[in-house]
Write a protein that binds this DNA or RNA. Structure first.
Lengths: 348, 348
DNA sequence: GTTAGCACTCTCCTTAATTGAGTGCTAAAA
DNA sequence: TTTTAGCACTCAATTAAGGAGAGTGCTAAC
């Protein structure tokens, strides 16, 4: 499937893609000959283009229009032509790091990085929260707010803080609360969230009931919160630069814009999209390669970010298949590094 | 300025507005005569329409087009014709309350209500977080996460929970932390947030320094957090149903859509918009009446919601001036009531 | 293998013609 | 005095037609 193209075909394919990325319209042989030093005449280019079309790298919207890269063409471009080096201007990385280094709050860092990425690429950016399943519960604490109202605070070692207010049908004495705190700390802290499943929590409940005289309903409320707080499907996705998609000529059609915005409005969909990307460091999905139907005319560039060498979340951009891959790849790469660093630092 | 219209003019104005809300296009005399039982001929209606135009209630996009309501026309309609009764179907209120009554988290309630409101009205909904200035600080607590990393948790009586991770350049003993907790509880809890200003916090700091041997930098970090956590300008605004604006024919122009979406992307702008609304219970701003330039072709219907009889936040919708006011007014009214109730309940 | 030349194709833009909804005015009817 | 019918007029929106332009594929010569 991935045949090697002869150098001239390769150069022509690259030129077409680069030109198409700029102009967003079909590219003809004359334009190509004029703008790129290919040292051959338009007629020759035409022959090569016909070959490239036969091989599936190009498409023709209609007879007598120029050629447009196909998904396969972009795939070849991304795999065989584009270098994956980070080529940000020197100092950019340091500047961004400095700009955000004072942020302590993980959620702030994430949404800040989403905005930064969308500003850099001029596409819509999405970041998933650090995945809890590979995180450990660093701290669990219960605080009394009022007679029958408690605040449960959960902190993971990725720095995610989650709090839930719990209303009880009975009040707890200060002693019982401090016992409960000690007990929960012992049983739950430093455990992998993945291990805090219903089975384990049931056990803990049993043990607790044996030691402390509590109403049956209380602990049930707790572990509802646990399960809800960090459940795998419910990863929050942060968006940045939604309005950038409107600047793409392929979204000149109002119907398409509507579809896209409705998609981005639904958090479950974003989850599905960002989680459909496999685990590799930097993954690119082009057009039809996407699993989610509604974005089969879009491309995704998604990187995984790491906290203390553990893969925890994804960050990427979504744009038209006609995307400035070299620039975007570099930006996503850089920002995912910075994101990992910032969170590691903030969560101590 | 607000002259009383004779009954026939009033009926005609009402008919034109109702028809225009449905069709989104200029209304002619013949259509009106056919669809509404006005018992006069089109010619008579034409004369009345000319009068209404002279009075400023109607506008004509161009000679030989029908008439369109002006801002003044809508204002008259809203003030003099539309009843402000809640006319939701029986049971709807109870259903919504039941649906959301299990939510304990104030942020969840707010974003849920934003979504609900946008679904009911088919316009974009916005809700501001409970305003902190009139809230009291119910609970302040510091938890140790690691040697030199603390978690500061703040809870207001409106149920808003705010947490910040603070990294120190020194570590604190358990004793000092528990002293700090007791001290801060005494000094800060049950105070109005409005009173926790820099001046007061400076005082507290002084007193603390006198009693406890702490590095000068520590408390500074704390009150940076305090000020940042609940500052008045930084009210978060929750959006729901952004894509609904695209369904309005007045946004058939891509440029307008872009402008609008860019506007909604900026949180500061939303703040400015929702805070430009004065304090009355249910306020309607029509077109030019809006202060923010970019929404002078939109209408706002905003209600204030209350927690224990204190005005704390705003909830409303934004849509084209050609808005279904009666339905929207009722929905906003109902949802603001429910929102207040739900938050009151959740925050005990 | 490469290139020039040429007929052919298809979209896009501009211009012109047509249609249709709606008005304002005038004069007659109520 | 108010209402209505009749009619000429206006203007946006739609349709039709006629280039203009960009590009291709093919053939024949280099």
């Amino acid at each position: 499937m991935v045949e090697e193209l002869d150098p001239r075909k390769k150069r022509i394919l690259q030129a077409i893609i680069q030109e198409h990325i700029i102009s967003a319209s079909p590219i003809g042989s004359r334009t190509l000959a004029k703008k790129y030093n290919l040292d051959v005449s338009p007629a020759t280019i035409r022959n090569e283009m016909a070959d490239l079309e036969d091989l599936g790298y190009l498409e023709q919207p209609h007879t007598s229009a120029g050629r447009v890269p196909s998904d396969k063409g972009y795939r070849y471009y991304v795999d065989q032509i584009v270098s994956r080096e980070k080529n940000e201007a020197p100092g950019v990385i340091e500047n961004i790091e400095n700009l955000y280094q004072d942020l302590q709050d993980v959620q702030d860092i994430i949404s800040g990085m989403a905005k930064m990425l969308s500003n850099m690429t001029h596409y819509t950016a999405m970041v998933s929260e650090p995945k809890s399943q590979v995180s450990r519960l660093k701290k669990v604490e219960i605080m009394q707010l009022a007679d029958n109202s408690l605040l449960l605070v959960l902190v993971t070692d990725a720095g995610m803080v989650n709090n839930k207010i719990i209303n009880l049908d009975q009040s707890l004495s200060t002693g019982k609360i401090s016992y409960l705190n000690k007990f929960l700390s012992e049983k739950l802290e430093n455990k992998l969230l993945a291990n805090l499943d219903t089975r384990y929590l049931k056990e803990v409940e049993k043990e607790l009931m044996a030691r402390l005289d509590l109403s049956v309903g209380l602990f049930k409320q707790f572990y509802n919160e646990f399960e809800g707080a960090f459940e795998p499907g419910g990863v929050k996705v942060y968006l940045g630069g939604t309005s950038y998609i409107l600047e793409q000529p392929e979204f000149n059609d109002l119907e398409k814009v509507k579809k896209m915005l409705r998609l981005l409005d639904q958090e479950e969909m974003l989850n599905k999209i960002i989680n459909s990307i496999s685990g590799s460091d930097l993954e690119i999905k082009i057009g039809q390669e996407n699993e989610v139907e509604d974005i089969k005319n879009c491309s995704l560039v998604v990187a995984t970010y790491y906290i203390s060498n553990r893969a925890v979340g994804k960050i990427g951009v979504i744009g038209p298949t006609r995307m400035e891959y070299p620039r975007v790849i570099s930006s996503v790469d850089v920002i995912s590094d910075i994101l990992g660093k910032l969170i590691s630092k903030a969560s101590g």
